[in-house]
Deep mutational scan, measured.
Amino acid sequence: GTEIELESKNGQREHYTATSEDEARKIIEKAVRRGIKRIELRGASEQLIRDMQEIAKQIGLQYRTDGSL
């Protein structure tokens, strides 16, 4: 699965493990709508990382991946 670590603007951290790319995408989209400061992805697919970079650029988000592409 993909591990997703979120940090909201007030510094609250949340951790999710998505079993599918679809689920990961839903978690990320929800977080973005809620207003999130930072997202870290571990074990994400190349496609998901590309999507994440696109989203991050659009809304000026900090993100990090573990680089295991």
Rank of each mutant, 00 (worst) to 15 (best):
K37D: 04
E5N: 10
T17R: 12
M52N: 00
T2I: 10
E54R: 10
L69G: 06
E21K: 02
I39Q: 00
E40L: 15
E40V: 15
I4K: 01
E7C: 11
D66S: 04
V32T: 04
A18F: 15
Q47E: 09
Q62M: 12
L6H: 01
R13Y: 09
R50V: 06
K26F: 11
I59Q: 14
T19S: 08
R42Y: 09
I59N: 15
E5K: 10
K37N: 08
N10R: 05
T65K: 07
E54S: 08
L48P: 00
G1P: 12
K37R: 14
D22K: 08
Q62R: 13
E3Q: 09
G35P: 03
A24E: 00
Q58G: 06
G60L: 09
K57I: 09
S20G: 05
Q58V: 07
T19H: 14
M52C: 07
T65D: 15
E7A: 04
S8N: 13
L69F: 15
K57T: 10
G43I: 01
E54K: 08
A18C: 13
I55H: 03
E7P: 01
L61C: 15
Q12S: 09
I4V: 04
R50P: 00
E23W: 04
E23I: 05
S45C: 05
N10I: 05
A31R: 02
I36C: 10
E14K: 07
A44R: 02
G11T: 01
K26G: 09
L48F: 07
D51Y: 15
T17D: 05
T2A: 06
S68F: 06
L6R: 00
A44Y: 03
S68V: 10
T19F: 12
M52L: 14
E23C: 07
E46Q: 11
K57F: 08
I36Q: 01
G1F: 13
Q62Y: 12
Q58E: 11
L69W: 15
I28D: 00
H15C: 13
R50W: 08
I59R: 13
E23A: 07
T19D: 09
E7H: 10
I49H: 08
A18R: 03
D66H: 06
K57Q: 08
G43D: 04
A24W: 03
S8C: 13
I36R: 01
G67L: 05
E54H: 05
Q47I: 07
E21T: 07
R33C: 14
E14A: 09
I28K: 00
R33F: 10
T65W: 06
G67H: 06
R33G: 08
K30W: 14
S68A: 07
Y63S: 10
R34K: 10
G60D: 09
S68W: 14
K9M: 13
R64K: 11
Q58M: 09
Q12C: 14
G60H: 06
M52A: 06
S8D: 13
E40Q: 14
I55F: 14
Q62I: 15
R50S: 08
L69D: 07
I39S: 00
I27P: 00
E21D: 14
D66P: 04
I49K: 07
Q12M: 09
E21A: 07
E23P: 01
R13N: 04
G11A: 04
Y16N: 01
I27G: 00
D22I: 10
R25G: 01
A31F: 08
K26W: 11
K26L: 13
M52V: 15
A24Y: 02
I39V: 06
Q47V: 06
E21N: 06
D22Y: 12
A56D: 01
E40G: 10
N10W: 11
G43M: 05
E14R: 09
R13K: 09
A31L: 10
Q53W: 13
E7I: 11
N10Q: 05
Y63L: 15
V32E: 00
E29P: 00
T65A: 13
I4W: 01
A56R: 03
Q12K: 11
Q62G: 04
V32A: 07
K30I: 11
N10T: 12
Q58Y: 06
S68P: 06
R34V: 10
R50I: 07
E54A: 11
A56W: 06
R42P: 01
I59H: 15
R38C: 10
E46N: 07
Q47H: 05
R64Q: 15
L61G: 04
K30T: 11
K30D: 13
G35E: 04
L69V: 10
G35A: 04
R13V: 11
S68Q: 07
I4D: 01
R34H: 10
G60I: 07
E21W: 07
A56Q: 03
Y63T: 11
I55T: 03
R50H: 08
R25N: 01
S45K: 02
A31W: 08
I49N: 06
Q47Y: 05
I36H: 01
E21H: 05
A18G: 05
M52F: 07
M52P: 00
E29G: 07
Y63I: 15
E40M: 15
G43T: 04
R50T: 06
K57R: 14
T19N: 11
M52I: 15
R33W: 06
Y63N: 09
D66Y: 03
S68M: 07
K9A: 10
R42S: 06
I4P: 00
R50A: 07
R38P: 00
Q12G: 09
M52S: 02
R38H: 06
E40C: 15
E46C: 15
K26D: 11
R50F: 09
E23L: 05
Y63F: 15
Q53D: 14
Y16V: 04
A44L: 02
I59P: 02
S68Y: 11
D22E: 12
T19P: 06
R13L: 11
I59M: 15
G1H: 12
E54G: 05
V32F: 15
I4A: 00
G43S: 05
K37L: 13
E7Q: 08
R64T: 14
Y63K: 06
T17A: 07
E46R: 08
A18M: 06
Q47P: 04
